[in-house]
Amino acid sequence: MLHFEHLTIGYADRIFIKNFTAHFLPGQLVGILGPNGSGKTTLLKTIAKLTPPTEGRIILGGMPLQAFSEQNLARVRSYIPAELTCAWPLATRHVLEIGRSADHRNWIETLDLGNLLDQTFNTLSSGEKARVLLAHSLMRSPKVILADEITSHLDALYQDKLMDLLRDYTRTGKVGVVVLHQPDLAYEFCDQVFMIEDQKLHLLSKKPPQLKGQILS
């Protein structure tokens, strides 16, 4: 579903990861670890098509990422940045409405956002913002969900809850790529854990791929 072909990412004067190839199947949650400045965020942005790769290409559902229009890509992938400020003092309710989400379901309930809806988004704590942004992402039912450090500001209870939610969501045939700071979370919830070091992507652990209700070989 998500395929990296000889991918090199970074900028002309600063390469983060050189020439790596990987393949992710539907149902997989992928964790990325790495020291500060190793290129975790740049990797996510490259997958999100916010930054072009220096070399190589990414293939998403059989089609090269570059061939997607912004509009089409928006229907299949979502991206949660590590930090986000709204340009206007919008209420959380209105932030959740941005981008014409198709599916409101019960993410608001699941993520306990009910009492935040009428508060100004910018006044929320980082942890609360992370929950709101995750809900915003999930409401759009993306095939690929990319999340940058959404657990960093959460307390232990919510960390587990959010990771659990992400894993359950990817089990429905989606791919999740999350940048994490806490290795224990990565090992516990992710199907594959990578570590960026010395311009390489090291595979630290790998569980057999799973889809909800069925086991793939």
Binding site: L50, S69, E70, L73, S78, A87, L90, V95, R100
Partner: peptide
């Protein structure tokens, strides 16, 4: 209108949400 809405979360999020 749609672009303006998404832009309130920043240019990057606007692109993520489908603005070119």
């Amino acid at each position: 209108r749609f672009t303006l809405e998404t832009l309130s979360l920043g240019e990057e999020m606007a692109i993520v949400l489908g603005a070119s």
